[in-house]
Design a protein around this nucleic acid. Sequence first.
DNA 1: TTAACTGCAAACCCTTTGCACGGTG
DNA 2: CACCGTGCAAAGGGTTTGCAGTTAA
Lengths: 125, 125
Amino acid sequence: MSNKIFRETKQRNAIKRAIEKANRPVGPKEILEIACDEVPNLGIATVYRNIKTMVEKGELDPVELPGQAPRYQPPSDKKPHLFICEKTDRVYTIDPKLGDFKPTLPEGFKLERFQIICFGEFEGK
Amino acid sequence: MSNKIFRETKQRNAIKRAIEKANRPVGPKEILEIACDEVPNLGIATVYRNIKTMVEKGELDPVELPGQAPRYQPPSDKKPHLFICEKTDRVYTIDPKLGDFKPTLPEGFKLERFQIICFGEFEGK
DNA sequence: TTAACTGCAAACCCTTTGCACGGTG
DNA sequence: CACCGTGCAAAGGGTTTGCAGTTAA
């Protein structure tokens, strides 16, 4: 069982702020770069360890992408559908207005859940 | 430019046949295992090199998955939508009967194409 | 014969882990 | 002061590359 006590450190806070500041799903390297403004020689291992801890605590959600390493975002923004900008490689969570749409599958396939991944260009800030 | 001449080898043929035999998108390890029936000490590097060559020649299509390494399938079966069996980790291409469905996106997002990834269990052979 | 192909091992890249030190509570 | 967290460097896992020997054409 997990009765570990979590401590506040300047590294952990910098990582949290970096993810919030990004405001879209970001990867470990991206997090490191942003957080390094606050904690110059932050190690990548610390970023990975904190991501893991935060995901376990439910403070961070992994966003898995086709053909790419996972990115992370605060759980409050949780939306399963994604938009991948093919110009900038940035990822956004979207609400594609599905109504009651549901894919129909051939026999034998039991649908648990589904995800729509959109590709294109995002022309915004 | 690429004016290389491609040769037939027993390894390359075994790899091609392994992918055809699988009849669903397969990864390098899976290809190696199947092809090893024909060519016992086939090297994994050869599998990777042939995958690359075949993708470049258009004889093979990569199938990219969220949070997983890409798998490959013959281009004739090309369908963008996928079903991932969470029991066996096997991947299947599907036709989810979309009709004229299209996701509606917020302003600023220019939709180029989209893909539906379904998760669940496949109860078939 | 020539140059593409192969197997092996080493090199890579990204992620994880071991260790000694530093810092929180 | 106990023990969690950190930085560094080494270890892992999957993919790629260098090399010398093999083989297709």
